[in-house]
Amino acid sequence: MKRVTSRILTLFIMTALCLSLVVAQEASAGQGDRDKLFGFAEALFAERDYYRAITEYKRFKYLYPVDVLVEKSDFRIGECYFKAGRRAEAIDFFNAFMRQYPAGALRPDALYLKGQAEKDQKRYTDAMTTFNELIRTGGVNYRDRALYAQALVLLAQQDWQSARESFATLPQESPLYPSAKLYSDGLGRMDGLPRKSPALAGTLAAVLPGAGHLYAERPRDALVSFLLNGSFIWAAVELFRNNNNVAGGIVAFFELGWYGGNIYSAIGSAHKYNKRIEDEYLQGLKDKSGISLYRDRTGSHYIMYSMMF
């Protein structure tokens, strides 16, 4: 009897050992699958294969709904939309993300990308509000970035003076300070750019068709305008001189269109000249500032900026 009991006990212990080994292996395999799945999604993200990455992040959420990485997966989905250029979807997604994780660690990053997406969508008021919220709630690490982003929003709105003031608010110890200083100083010199006066261009065009274009540095347009208007005016004058008043009236009517268009075109040319000068100047500032964002080791936070001078 004792022998039978001993055998049963041995058998029981061996079975328990085997079972625990199998369970441990299964558990280990599950952990491996989780890491592999998230890693695969991250690899797709790193390769900029954003749409497939979204699918994998969603798969991860479906398979591991209470995992600690679900918040990051959610954030990454919004980031994928942003980087894939689907700004409207990114905004909606980040709004939902912030409702779902009101105190989440990635909330400031979500706010930052949401603000950028709004700016890209030319929803400047929304972008300013979002960056204001980031300044209020994001802590010191995000304050400077949000201030800098707000200045860029003002720049996009061509509000040079406010942009300049906004850049000037960045503290000297901020890594963004050199770039902000460059922008601030550069914007201060905007008034000195060699611009053309639209009023003068229009006046010159009214006095002598083509002269406005010449002033706006468009010589071929000036020649076309001068010849067209000159031909029609000359034709109308000749027709009236020969008492061909009906034909003269028709030609004069068409000439009115050419003449008005010539003035409009000269004014527009001056505006386009100024815009080109400003754009080139701002492009130069942008190239000099050369801000780049990098991520931390986990890839979840934007932490560093580099500048080219």
Partner: peptide, 13 residues
């Protein structure tokens, strides 16, 4: 009309 004329005039440059 003004913008159409403007377009016809400013093509060259």
């Amino acid at each position: 009309i003004l913008m159409t004329v403007d377009r016809l005039l400013h093509e060259m440059d």
